[in-house]
């Protein structure tokens, strides 16, 4: 199948996904389960990465702009901007594409090759809606919280590393993160996060849903889910940045 065929089939799957859930109660219960599986259980890796990346950004910024002409607080400013504008929404989403995307593709792909999706269809259950919509609702609801936690921990990690390593004083760092703060940058980051959550979930679900074959093909679907999600996230990142920031 060519790329146009895949795009067409992707949108047809989305149409199926957004049709009425079988039962609202079951939908919300499944959404909460998925929020735990796909969101809360990703908190550890997000926290770890954010704190360490914030620390590295601070130290690298300091070493690169170590000039008497540049004020010390700029390190805090640059760390904040890097974390809020790019690291937390984009890099964390790329990492979630690896963790969550492969999970979604493998789960749905395994269900496909074991005929469990056929079983749902024959029972009269809308399999796309039953399987994909709760995952989509879960990631769209939980990922912004993950990214906000990432922003906080990234900046906190930068402050801690900067002060501990003696590259910046606590007062200068705090002055830097307060200087020229635009609340819209947080909104921009959260809009990106929601779009990326949609991309990760739907592309991964598409790869899993149309898996044909056996366990090897499930593995291939998982890999494709991660690669295609990452490529589309990078393209969407460029488009959203041009539309929202310029």
């Amino acid at each position: 199948m060519g790329i146009i065929g895949h795009i067409g089939r992707y949108f047809l799957l989305l149409r199926e996904t957004f049709s009425r859930p079988e039962r609202a109660g079951i939908f919300w219960r499944r959404t909460l389960e998925e929020m735990d599986l796909l969101g809360v259980q990703s908190l550890g890796i997000v926290a770890l990465l954010s704190a360490f990346m914030g620390a590295v950004i601070t130290i690298q910024t300091k070493t690169n702009i170590d000039s008497p002409l540049i004020q010390a607080w700029v390190v805090g400013f640059a760390t904040r901007q890097s974390v809020i504008l790019e690291f937390s929404p984009t890099v964390i989403s790329l990492i979630l594409a690896g963790k969550v995307g492969s999970n979604i593709a493998a789960e749905i792909g395994s269900m496909r090759v074991k005929e469990q999706i056929d079983a749902l269809d024959i029972m009269g259950v809308n399999s796309a809606g039953y399987l994909i919509l709760p995952k989509l609702a879960a990631t769209i609801l939980i990922n912004p919280f993950l990214v906000m936690i990432s922003m906080f921990l990234g900046i906190f990690g930068g402050w801690l590393a900067g002060v501990q390593a003696g590259v910046i004083s606590s007062d200068d760092f705090i002055l830097g993160i307060q200087t020229g703060f635009k609340p819209f940058h947080v909104t921009y980051a959260l809009i990106k996060t929601v779009v990326f959550a949609f991309i990760i979930t739907t592309i991964s679900a598409y790869q899993g849903y149309f898996t044909r074959g056996g366990t090897r093909e499930v593995g291939i679907s998982s890999t494709r889910a991660v690669v295609y999600s990452n490529v589309v996230i990078l393209l969407a990142n460029l488009v959203l940045t041009r539309v929202l920031l310029l």
């Binding site: 395994s110 269900m111 074991k114 005929e115 469990q116 056929d118 079983a119 269809d121 024959i122 029972m123 009269g124």
Partner: peptide, 20 residues
Amino acid sequence: EKRQVRQRIGMLFQGSALFD
């Protein structure tokens, strides 16, 4: 209408297709 017919269908699959 298809949904209503399908709800009256029971199917046993070759590999059982139970939800793991």
